[in-house]
Computed example of a mutant assay.
Amino acid sequence: MVDWSAVVTVFSVYMASAVIPGPNFVAITHKAVTGKRSDTFALVAGIVTVNLFWATCAMLGIGAVFAIFPWLAVGVRIAGAAYLVWFGLRLLMSARATPAEAKHPPKAPRFRAAFLQGVATNIANPKSIAFYAAVFSSAVPAHVSTQTFFAMLATVGAAATCWYGAVALVLSHAAIAAAYRRAKAWIDLTCGGLMIALGIRQAFR
């Protein structure tokens, strides 16, 4: 039998965190205004996949693992922060590209690359790791039925897909992409700066 109160709690806790802009939001924003819509949704799929992974780990007790092995949590946080800084630097460098180059992205297959970028962005996202290890895991009851476990997992997957999918759909609109091309350098510099700031902040927390 499904414990719906637990499912609702998980949904509320997850959405309260998801709507706060972080590395995932910045990555989706940049992909939406620079790449194809299909690539943006591929990136979202990668982010959602990792959300399901972290949610599963949290419900199985990753918070306890990090409490027993604090050095592991520190290592994961530092590695994630390093990735965010690296990604931010790439965005700063892309600010030099001309609007014409942004309008005509490479024709090589990018769907798989976009999916893997979404996976890398979220699995190295210190915000996600900290949220699932501390806040999310504490919101999940200690013992739940198999039905409740999968209901909570499905709730996280559906909520992440709807939220990030909506962001991708809105920001990949042609008018928004055209506005990006007119202000490409400033947007890339802003997104890159945010990624680097988030990475540095997480590294020294």
Rank of each mutant, 00 (worst) to 15 (best):
M1P: 15
V2Y: 12
D3H: 11
W4R: 10
V8S: 14
T9L: 09
T9P: 06
T9W: 04
T9D: 10
V10A: 15
Y14R: 04
Y14I: 02
Y14S: 11
M15K: 00
M15E: 08
P21M: 01
G22L: 05
G22Q: 01
P23N: 01
P23Y: 00
P23T: 02
N24R: 03
H30V: 11
A32C: 09
T34K: 07
T34Q: 06
K36Q: 11
S38N: 06
S38M: 04
F41L: 14
A45P: 00
V48C: 08
V48A: 07
T49F: 13
V50T: 10
L52G: 08
L52V: 12
T56Y: 10
C57I: 12
A58C: 07
A67Y: 03
F69P: 10
W71L: 15
L72K: 08
A73C: 02
G75I: 01
R77I: 09
R77N: 15
A79I: 13
A81M: 09
A82G: 07
Y83N: 01
V85Q: 01
R90Q: 12
R90C: 01
L92C: 08
A97Q: 14
E101R: 11
A102C: 09
H104V: 13
P106E: 09
A108D: 09
P109H: 01
R110N: 13
F111H: 10
R112T: 12
A114E: 07
L116Y: 12
L116D: 03
Q117D: 14
A120M: 15
P126G: 08
S128P: 05
S128H: 06
S128Y: 02
S128E: 05
I129F: 09
A130R: 02
F131N: 04
A133R: 03
A134T: 11
A139M: 04
S145M: 09
S145T: 15
T148N: 06
F149M: 06
F149W: 12
F150N: 05
M152W: 09
T155H: 04
G157E: 02
A159S: 11
T161L: 14
G165V: 05
V167I: 14
V167F: 05
S172D: 04
A174K: 13
A175W: 12
A177K: 15
A179T: 15
A183S: 15
K184M: 13
D188R: 00
L189S: 04
G192S: 00
I196R: 01
A197G: 05
A197F: 03
R205D: 12
R205F: 08
